[in-house]
Design a protein around this nucleic acid. Structure first.
Lengths: 335, 335
DNA sequence: CGCGGCTATTTTAGCGCTAAAATAGCTATG
DNA sequence: CATAGCTATTTTAGCGCTAAAATAGCCGCG
């Protein structure tokens, strides 16, 4: 921190001199311990520690033409589902001796910049969310040879993909409401650009409603699928659309939970008058009263699996190009 | 992605050849546009685009001896407060033409590895949470000359710090309860190793209670300050300790909110019988009923300010070493 | 005791870029 | 029209590391 006029950090050659070996032996002591004798290795490690030596990854990556870094570009990590996903990525990386670096990408421009940075760092792998990217991003990715996993959404992957079929989950939620005798079922959506995983839902919902012979037009949008103000907002819009609505499918548990709160405030019985299904199985889902029926994806498995796919990509030829981690409909009190 | 047998990505020399200039001109066209003529710059950019050229950051960082990357090691980003903080970091970086890379550091080992990676990448700056680090981390940081900002907590910074005084906030919360006539005030804590920002609170709480002539022993711990199961757990422990408790200060709004839910379930009137203060002003605080009285730090300002401090560090000599972003006690319905 | 077959270590030769120095090409000026 | 004083571009010389090739040192065996 402070020295600032330090003549620069210790280099590998400094360590080599201190330990009376060549630079290459220092390199080997770190990267390929089995190549050096135990005694030599210890001597090197001691000298390195003494000098506060930290390998210059830029130099190493340049010389080796590769790195042990996996880059992930993720949008707003603000719910426990994403947290588990990132944890899965992190643990996957640790298990393979790699480092995970995360860059925030709420917009397509940010995603493109993140991808540029990962390619620039010659990352060993790249993980993105969804399959809706800036054409420039796709172009960059196509020209690089870094393995890529797109996650959460299955579709037509650029390279590999891991996630679940949202349309199946939407159908499962619809059928659950129908089976419970609900007739006026509504969907709360969100169609900000770039949020493909929400935009897939309405068409599937409409199709499923038509098949059941029920109204397919009970759809409203909220601005912010992760904000607690969206539940009340959606409820207002829904009741304005049709006062007799008796079931709702929300885009996230946050929307569902805040809708449950709002119902309690207005004296609307849940699930008596309105049944509510959330999405994500966030922690709040099982804690509030009534607890939330929700669609549970498997975020940790997605994260962990994404890294496994990246790691296997090079090695064996028989690696999976697409992995379905499935989902569960967790039935609780709200619907 | 797939080629994988591509003879490698385009290099700066390839672009130079395609544009009929020297490699250095390509470099300048990217890094110092004003040094090359507009016509040349366009020619270079076109060639670069054509070839899908992405600068090798490893090579650039090595040659320049520095990078435009800021590294931040953050624990579990799972609440809206941290989200705003990281957004502040991100926007600060963008404003200064730098990239933010985030590494997850829930444990001290992970923090040390993150710091090693940042130093290894020759980051332009490092941001950490709190001031409680592994000695090895402190050692590494001390031997490097990368500017460092520790955030959230003010104390004795290794280099620079930005945050607020938690002890002042604890006193403000205590006094608020006392002023409202509460006599049996409790504190919910958490003492996992590495969570310094929770462990500072009990001593201050005790001191403040003694000054007010009130019991200073009403303290319980929860395992998980960010989980919705902690509120019920803390309430149980608290009532077992003293059935007459009439006020609580929680470590986070998540604990406070789940305690409010649990009180509703048990028919305990909030704030009638028990007043509850949360911490963080997460989104849920203003949405539930009764809404939460809470301590609000300024996470976005912390993040943004942290980057500003890093950027000013080198330039002017008169940079601030410590910045207090303060806090607010937001009074709502719960206490 | 000389030589193949080891293993541990060193030497060699860059990786792709950029700071700094050198050069080329131009204009204004006496 | 030679020269100082520009600006735009190129040349030179590494940054700190690692893959691959070369070497040194040692063993056992005929």
């Amino acid at each position: 921190m402070k020295p600032s006029r330090g003549q620069g950090t210790a280099t590998m050659q400094d360590v080599a001199d201190a330990a009376n070996v060549s630079a290459m032996t220092v390199s080997n002591a770190f990267r390929h311990p089995h190549r050096v004798q135990e005694a030599t290795r210890l001597k090197v490690l001691e000298a390195a520690f003494e000098l506060g030596y930290v390998p210059n990854l830029a130099a190493g990556n340049l010389a080796a033409g590769k790195s042990r870094v996996i880059g992930a570009a993720v949008p707003s990590v603000r719910n426990s589902s994403f947290y588990k996903y990132v944890t899965g990525l992190q643990e996957g990386c640790e298990a393979h001796g790699h480092k995970l670096i995360v860059m925030l990408a709420d917009t397509m421009r940010q995603e493109r910049e993140a991808v540029e940075t990962f390619i620039g760092l010659r990352a060993a792998g790249i993980v993105l969310i969804g399959n809706d990217h800036d054409p420039a991003t796709v172009d960059l990715l196509g020209k690089s040879s870094i393995p890529l996993v797109e996650s959460w959404l299955l579709g037509e992957p650029l390279d590999m993909a891991i996630g679940y079929h949202i349309d199946e989950a939407v159908r499962a939620a619809c059928r659950h409401h129908v089976a419970a005798g609900r007739r006026r079922i509504a969907l709360v959506g969100n169609d900000r650009p770039g949020t493909r995983r929400f935009r897939e839902r309405p068409p599937v919902f409409r199709d499923e409603m038509r098949r059941a012979g029920l109204p397919d037009n009970l759809i409203v949008d909220v601005d912010e699928p992760h904000g607690f103000s969206s539940g009340p907002q959606a409820l207002d819009a829904l009741l304005a659309l049709d006062g007799e609505i008796d079931a709702v499918i929300c885009p996230t548990d946050v929307v569902a939970a805040s809708m449950v709160f709002e119902c309690a405030r207005r004296g609307i019985d849940v699930p008596g008058r309105i049944a509510i299904i959330g999405w994500g199985d966030y922690e709040i889902a099982s804690t509030i009263s009534p607890s939330l029926t929700t669609v549970k994806p498997h975020p940790w498995e997605m994260g962990h699996g994404a890294i496994a796919m990246l790691m296997e990509n090079g090695s064996a030829g028989h690696s999976q190009r697409t992995v379905d981690t499935g989902f569960e409909l967790i039935v609780r009190e709200s619907g």
